[in-house]
Amino acid sequence: MFIAVSLAILITMGLALARALTGPTTYDRIAAVNMFGTKTVLLIAVLAFLSGRTDLLDIALVYALINFIGVVAALKLVTQKNFHSSGEKERKVE
């Protein structure tokens, strides 16, 4: 049964990956990658129970945080073209 659930999650990840590859705009791609990351967290959690090693849940926990930071960093890179400016300046220019 855990195998069925992980298969369903894998199908969802495949669909998200297809959207990330075909997505017309950059934001579609980032949203798809965000969804892919959330599914990865769930997949790791299910795999932890499938293999009976609940230590894997720590990895899922860390992945949930890293996924968020990664998405925000990618957004910052896309909207500002760099990592070092603060973003306040750009808002004023617009």
């Binding site: 049964m1 369903a8 199908i11 969802t12 669909l15």
Partner: peptide, 19 residues
């Protein structure tokens, strides 16, 4: 099991939705 199954199905529905 019902919760897990429904969760997996909802994931697929969301995947269809983004297409």
């Amino acid at each position: 099991w019902v919760c897990l199954f429904a969760g997996g199905m909802l994931g697929i529905v969301g995947g269809i939705g983004i297409h």
